[in-house]
């Protein structure tokens, strides 16, 4: 019955919930979904992580490769991030080349990682001008339940934290490369960016900020993904994007900044606990 009502009067259905200060899935406006994180599920990838936040599932796999650095930046390696939204995760995406929303999400994630400078590209260089690491980080969305950018960033950070680079010896005379997978060093990370998504809905004459929106709420607030994405990196904002949805006033903004900061700390704890469990398991085995 409620399914029929949802189809015929979508706006009234949503408004009925908002007027009672609750969302259709039962959460309050500032309640976030629980984060479930798992690392190193995929053994063929050099590092991987899987996140399940409500209905949203994203898996990140990192593959390492070797290449010659660019001529204009001889002491820097490469960090290539890509987000893939396959037709498997939602009926909105069709098979074929990446859709516009996939490209936009890829761009946002890549900008956040570059802005936060969490990976120093000079660390990825092995021999300047001759050999450097290329980190191909591919995030694959398995189920699009809203707040994609949040999930992608958390899973990417968790995989980068568990990534270990094998040692490479390079003989400059013979140009011979030898890789030893038994001796591995951890990748050095400066900072841990965590993003929080919001949807902004105009109800009567006030603006309602919904934290961690589901895909249904994102659709009701105007379409392509979350309206506001705030990314905190160890206390500093490293990215703030707002598009669509309703217009934003100053007090909403302060509340949103506070919520984003708390969420960043919470997510950081989740990642730390998860990695500690994983490392204790691999050390005992």
């Amino acid at each position: 019955m409620s399914e029929v009502y949802k189809l015929i009067h979508p706006v009234k259905f949503f408004n009925d919930y908002i007027s009672k200060n609750v969302r259709p899935d039962g959460r309050s406006f500032s309640e976030q979904r629980n984060i479930k994180l798992n690392v190193d599920a995929i053994k063929t990838a050099d590092a991987s992580a899987l996140i399940k936040c409500g209905n949203t599932s994203v898996i990140c796999g990192i593959k390492l490769e070797l290449a010659t650095p660019k001529a204009e930046e001889p002491n820097k390696g490469f960090l290539i991030t890509n987000v893939e939204l396959p037709p498997l995760c939602s009926s909105k995406y069709r098979p074929g080349p990446p859709s516009d929303s996939a490209q936009v999400t890829s761009n946002i994630v890549s900008d956040i990682i570059n802005n936060s400078k969490c990976v120093d590209l000079t660390d990825l260089c092995i021999v300047p001008d001759k050999l450097a690491w290329v980190l191909y980080c591919d995030m694959l969305c398995l189920d699009n339940g809203g707040s994609l950018v949040d999930a992608c960033i958390i899973t990417l950070m968790a995989s980068l934290k568990t990534l270990r680079l094998p040692t490479v010896t390079y003989d400059p005379e013979t140009e011979d490369i030898k890789v030893d997978t038994n001796v591995q060093t951890k990748l050095k990370l400066n900072g841990l960016p965590i993003a929080t998504s919001f949807a902004i809905y105009k109800y009567m004459d006030r603006n309602v900020t919904l934290v961690d929106p589901s895909s249904y709420e994102e659709d009701m607030c105007g379409g392509l993904g979350a309206n506001l994405i705030l990314c905190y990196n160890k206390g500093f904002l490293c990215s703030s994007q707002k598009f669509g949805g309703s217009n934003f006033s100053v007090d909403c903004e302060e509340k949103a900044l506070k919520i984003a900061k708390e969420r960043a700390q919470l997510a950081e704890e989740v990642i730390d606990v998860c990695i500690k469990n994983y490392e204790s398991k691999t050390n005992t085995v």
């Binding site: 900008d111 802005n115 936060s116 400078k117 990196n233 500093f236 904002l237 490293c238 990215s239 703030s240 994007q241 707002k242 598009f243 217009n247 934003f248 006033s249 903004e253």
Partner: peptide, 10 residues
């Protein structure tokens, strides 16, 4: 009021 915002850097 704010319609759109986007930033670069920290």
């Amino acid at each position: 009021s704010l319609v759109t915002a986007f930033t670069d850097g920290s």
